[in-house]
Design a protein around this nucleic acid. Structure first.
Lengths: 226, 226
DNA sequence: TCTACTATTCATCAAACGTTCAATGAAATT
DNA sequence: AATTTCATTGAACGTTTGATGAATAGTAGA
C-alpha cells in the first residue's frame, strides 16, 4: 500500500499533491490529472479514495484543521491560568502562534495549507469551509477577547476579529506582494518579523476601537483620542 | 453596436458579466460560455474584443483601478494641506475611503470588483495584478505613513500596510463569514460599521508597532539580518 | 491454498473547455 | 453607389475535464 520509493500511501501522496497545487493555482485551476500526475498515481485514485475532486479539497482542508484547533485551545487555556482578567495580547498570541510556529518550522506542507487557507477565506464559494472547520474554536477565542475587553461592544470585538483574520490570512498567502512592494526589504517568509509585529498591532487595534466606542457612548460625539 | 434592450455595448456587457462571475466563483471557476451567456452575446465575442479569457480578466481589473488611484491621491494631497506632520488616521482614511464610498453607493459592479480584488490579492497566481495596478499609488501612501510616523522603522510601516490591506480586502470579499460567525450581529454590508472602526483600528496598530520598535531599539538589540 | 477484501490500473465516457474561422449584417467612408 | 471597416453570428476545432466500470494485483486471514 505505501509507495515503494517514498514509503507514503497513495492517499497521503494525493493529499500532499492536492494541497500544494490547490494552494498555488486554486481549486478550479488544478485538474484531477494535475494532482494524480504530481502524486505519481493513477487518475482513478481520487474517485476511489475520496469520491470526487470536491471531496478531496474537503479532505485536504480537514486534515490539518483539528491540529490547529487543539493547540489554539491549549494555548488559550494556558493564558487563563493564574491572573484575573485575560491579557489581550496574550489572547491574540494564543490564536496566531500555532500558525506562525508551523509556518516557521512545519515544512512545505503547512506552508501550502496556509496559502490555501488564505484563498478559501477570501472566496465566496469556499469560505464556508472556514466556518465549518474553525468557527467552533473561533467562538471561544472571541469570548476570550471579550473577557480581555470587558467594556467593549461585542460588535467591536467581531469586527476586530474580522480585521485580524484578514491580516493573518494575507500574511500566509505567499503572494510575494509585500516582497515586491518593499523592494525585498520585507520578506513574507520572515516569520520572526511578522511574529514580532502581529500581536502588538492587533491588540492595539482592538483596544483603540473599544476605547473609542466607550468614549463615544459616554460623552463626546466624535473621537476623544488620537 | 449598443444592445437594443440595455443600450450598453457588447464589450461593456462582457466586462460587467465577467466582473460579477469572476467575483463569485473565481477566474477558473467561470467559463467563457458562462460569461457570454450572462452577457447575452456570442462566445466568440471574448476573443474578438479582448483576445483571450485571461486578457478579459486583465481588462476587468484595469477598468476601475485608475478611478480608485486618482481619488486616493486626491484625498492624500488634501490631508497634506495646512499642518506640518501628517495625521496617521487621516492618511489611512484617505486610502480606504474611496473604497468604502463605492462599496456603500457604487452599486453591484463596484461590490463585485472589490470581491474580485480580495481573491486576487490572496492568490499567488494573480496577485501580480495588484502590484501592476495599485502599487505605484501604494508607494506614495506608504511614504505618507512614514511621514506620519517619522521614528518608525520602514519595515514596520510595510508590515503595517500589509496587515491593513489584508483586513481591507477580506472586508470586501463578501464571503458572509462574519455574518455567520456573529449570528448576524455584524453585517458585511454594514459599510458605516466598518467605516467607523477601520481607521482607528489600523492607526492604533501602526502606532503601537512603531512605538514598540523604538523602545526596543533603545534597550535590547534585535536580530541583525539573515 | 483458497477466499475475501482492498488497492491500483487501464480504457473509456459524455460533457465542457478556450479558441478560431468563414460568413454576414450594419455602419462609416469614399 | 460602391467600398471598406467594424461587430456579430453560428459552427466547429482539438483538447481537457471529472468520473466510472471492468479487469488486475496485492494482502491477510481461514
Amino acid at each position: 500500500m505505501p509507495n515503494r520509493k517514498t514509503g507514503r500511501s497513495a492517499k497521503d501522496r494525493l493529499l500532499d499533491a492536492a494541497e500544494r497545487l490547490f494552494a498555488k493555482r486554486g481549486y478550479h485551476g488544478v485538474s484531477i490529472r494535475d494532482i494524480t500526475e504530481a502524486a505519481g498515481v493513477d487518475v482513478a485514485m481520487v474517485s476511489y479514495h475520496f469520491g470526487s475532486k470536491r471531496a478531496l479539497l474537503t479532505a485536504v482542508f480537514e486534515r490539518r484543521a483539528e491540529e490547529i484547533n487543539v493547540e489554539r485551545l491549549e494555548r488559550l487555556e494556558a493564558t487563563r491560568r493564574g491572573r484575573g482578567r485575560l491579557d489581550l495580547e496574550q489572547v491574540v498570541n494564543s490564536f496566531m502562534e500555532p500558525l506562525f510556529e508551523r509556518m516557521a518550522r512545519g515544512g512545505r506542507g503547512w506552508k501550502s495549507y496556509f496559502a490555501l487557507l488564505a484563498q478559501v477565506n477570501n472566496s465566496p464559494e469556499f469560505a464556508v469551509l472556514m466556518t465549518r472547520n474553525f468557527d467552533p474554536v473561533v467562538h471561544k477565542f472571541i469570548e476570550a477577547l471579550q473577557s480581555a475587553l470587558p467594556d467593549a461592544d461585542p460588535r467591536d470585538v467581531y469586527w476586530g476579529y474580522h480585521f485580524l483574520t484578514g491580516a493573518l490570512t494575507l500574511t500566509f498567502a505567499e503572494t510575494g506582494r509585500l516582497d515586491r512592494l518593499s523592494g525585498q526589504l520585507c520578506r513574507s517568509t520572515d516569520s520572526d518579523g511578522v511574529r514580532a509585529r502581529f500581536a502588538p498591532f492587533m491588540a492595539a487595534g482592538f483596544a483603540a476601537v473599544a476605547r473609542r466606542r466607550v468614549g463615544e457612548a459616554a460623552a463626546a460625539p466624535r473621537r476623544a483620542r488620537r
